[in-house]
Simulated scan of single mutants.
Amino acid sequence: MDWNLNFISEEDFKKHVRATIMKYGEKLESYDLRRFNSNLIDPIKLIFDKSVYCTSWEEIVNNEIFRQRDKSNNNDIGYFHQNIFSYFNGCEVPQAGWDVIYKNPNGIQMPDGDIVHTLYVEMKNKHNTMNSASSAKTYIKMQGQILEDDDCACLLVEAIAKKSQNIKWTTKVDGKNVQHRLIRRVSMDQFYAILTGEENAFYKMCMVLPQTIKEVVNEESGVKVPHDTVIEDLRKVAVLYCEKDDELAMAMAVYMLGFSTYMGFNDTVQPELGTGKDEMLKRIYEYVERAPINR
């Protein structure tokens, strides 16, 4: 494809996409029953969700696996949003302090007419991820920076903002509404525009991203495709309850993940699981690992 991003080279962009994918790391590892239940799932919720949304066991289990992976992937996407600026002219991504610092010796025009030469940036993935205490703390930090350096502005940049914007950030500190013309709330598209001078720079980046990700995944031998075995593992446990109908047998397999020691459930222990002193859940995992696949 033709490369039309003037603010980052194709080589650097692909390098950054590759680094982001590598950040996924262990989250690309396959899920078995032990890993699936490592933080203890809620069997009641899983069964409610399956019934209310009229999905199959395969679908509801795969959705839960996706949810678990997605929960830890947000930090990796934050890495993508923040560290791409290390390739932009005038930008620095410090190890601590600020997420991004941008310096322009020619001056940076602010919406209210001020011209500054440095921007100090805090980044958030979504507009609603800061509580009142965090907002106040960040605002006070920005106030302190402006008192220390009167030739700067401070930006709260949001990757997913409610709308495209570059506005004064109004928040509460000690119960009072505060704002300053050099402390601003900026959407990601507007931030790209400030840094590059191109109104559609963020849009252009988004247009080349899918193909670049595809190319990197195809090229990178270290990117593994997960093979999850959770549904097969649950079916192995369900076989132990074959006297029940198929639906309830699978429900029992799910229940045993969270309730194996609960009264009533511990009376349903099957001979195949053994009678050792180990915790019941551990015995279930060990049984799954040695039992043949049942389809």
Rank of each mutant, 00 (worst) to 15 (best):
H81A: 13
T55M: 07
F265W: 11
K163R: 15
F85M: 02
G113A: 01
D2K: 14
R67S: 12
C206I: 07
D267R: 03
V173W: 10
L195R: 00
T118S: 08
D151Y: 06
D189P: 05
I293D: 12
Y31I: 11
Q82M: 03
K224S: 10
L240V: 08
T171R: 00
E29T: 09
I21G: 02
G258Y: 07
T275I: 10
W57M: 06
R235H: 13
I60E: 10
Y285Q: 06
M263L: 11
Q95E: 13
G175P: 05
L281H: 06
K27F: 10
S9F: 01
S38N: 11
S56D: 09
P210C: 04
G107E: 02
V100G: 06
I213A: 07
A96F: 07
R290E: 10
N83L: 09
Y241I: 04
K141Y: 02
F48V: 09
A201K: 00
N75I: 12
C242D: 12
D189C: 05
P210A: 03
I284D: 00
P210H: 08
T261F: 04
S187N: 08
L46K: 09
T212V: 15
I140G: 03
R69F: 01
I44P: 00
N177D: 13
Y87A: 02
I183R: 02
T229F: 07
M205R: 13
E148Y: 07
G113N: 00
N125S: 15
P271E: 14
H227I: 15
S9W: 00
K162P: 11
M188P: 05
G175A: 06
T20Y: 10
L240R: 08
I108L: 02
R283K: 08
D149Y: 00
S30P: 03
F265S: 08
T20I: 03
P292Y: 05
R67G: 12
N177S: 07
C91T: 01
G97F: 02
I77G: 00
F191K: 00
N128H: 10
N62Q: 10
R34S: 11
E10I: 02
E243R: 14
F48S: 07
K14D: 04
V254F: 03
I231S: 05
Q95K: 15
S221T: 07
V121D: 02
D49M: 11
G276F: 05
E232G: 11
H117L: 02
D267P: 04
M142I: 08
D114Y: 07
N63Q: 15
T55I: 15
Q211R: 14
K71P: 03
A253M: 05
I60Y: 00
V208F: 00
D245K: 05
E29R: 11
M110S: 09
V239I: 13
R185V: 01
A249F: 01
L234S: 00
E215T: 12
L46R: 09
K137F: 05
K282S: 14
A251E: 14
Y102T: 01
F13P: 02
G197Y: 02
K141V: 09
A161K: 00
T229D: 05
N83F: 11
Y31G: 01
F259T: 06
E279G: 15
